[in-house]
């Protein structure tokens, strides 16, 4: 018996302004599975990531995205996050003036209590501090970062680590990693991957978006999809990554054209 479907994308068409980017994406992921999404520059990988979390710039012109059977097309990013979706950004946003700890306390309170009303108390400072400290410790992040402004003056690797810290604390049911490996040195890549692997569980699914096969040596996917020209042109097992490493994307681009 296979696990229940976690994410289902059916015939997804997405435009930015007047330009169609995704042209009929179909993808199904089951609970507990980790899928990798690979593809050449401009194939629409990041568009898919942003669309899944509900960025207002990306307009769904056709198709349905559902999480655990619930159609999420009309939900805003906050509602999606409260359903258990998490996007680790390729370019995490800098928010000067907002301390990492304050931001995380707001986020954790909302995610853990999705029915929370505006103005209700945040989670207890004591519990929060302990959990934050422990998790930062596990991820090898200096405690001093909690007091810094979110991503302000952070290096590329620090920002990515901060994304994994947030993912760990928020414990999503469905995590999307958008080129989390870009700009990371080998050590950082290992730390980040270990962080993700520690989160892998029966009821948790991950969609790992990457250009390179190397990340997949650390985070081993169950299924690999190749996105080219706005469509999934091929899906297969882990061996597909090795094939891509040898042949490149050109055959897929030709097939998609």
């Amino acid at each position: 018996m296979s696990a229940p479907v976690a994410l289902k994308i059916e015939n997804l068409h997405v435009s930015v302004g007047e330009t169609p980017i995704l042209k009929g994406v179909n993808l199904t992921m089951r609970q507990g599975e980790t899928h990798a999404l690979m593809g050449p520059n401009g194939s629409g990988k990041s568009t898919l990531a942003y669309t899944l979390i509900g960025h207002p710039k990306y307009e769904i012109t056709e198709g349905i995205i559902s999480i655990d059977g619930t159609d999420i097309n009309e939900l805003d990013p906050c509602e999606r996050a409260r359903l258990g979706m998490f996007l680790a950004f390729q370019y995490p946003v800098t928010i000067p003036g907002v301390k990492v700890a304050d931001f995380l306390r707001h986020a954790m309170t909302n995610i853990r209590n999705p029915d929370r009303k505006e103005g209700e108390e945040l989670m207890s400072m004591r519990d929060f501090r302990k959990e934050l400290r422990d998790t930062m410790n596990e991820l090898n992040i200096d405690a001093e970062f909690a007091r810094r402004y979110l991503n302000d003056g952070f290096s590329g690797g620090e920002k990515k680590r901060m994304e994994i810290l947030q993912m760990t604390l928020l414990g999503p049911k469905f995590g999307i990693l958008d080129e989390t490996d870009s700009g990371l040195d080998i050590d950082a890549l290992r730390v980040v991957s270990e962080g993700v692997n520690a989160l892998r569980a029966d009821k948790r699914s991950f969609l790992v978006i990457t250009h390179y096969q190397r990340l997949l040596e650390y985070i081993k996917p169950d299924v690999i999809h190749v996105l080219a020209n706005g469509r999934v042109v091929r899906s297969g097992g882990p061996e597909l990554a090795l094939e891509l490493e040898k042949t490149g994307y050109k055959d897929f681009i030709a097939a998609a054209a």
Binding site: P77, L87, V93, H106, L170
Partner: peptide, 8 residues
């Protein structure tokens, strides 16, 4: 958007 994507 970033803050909303984290549940706010």
């Amino acid at each position: 958007f970033y803050a909303m994507a984290r549940g706010l």
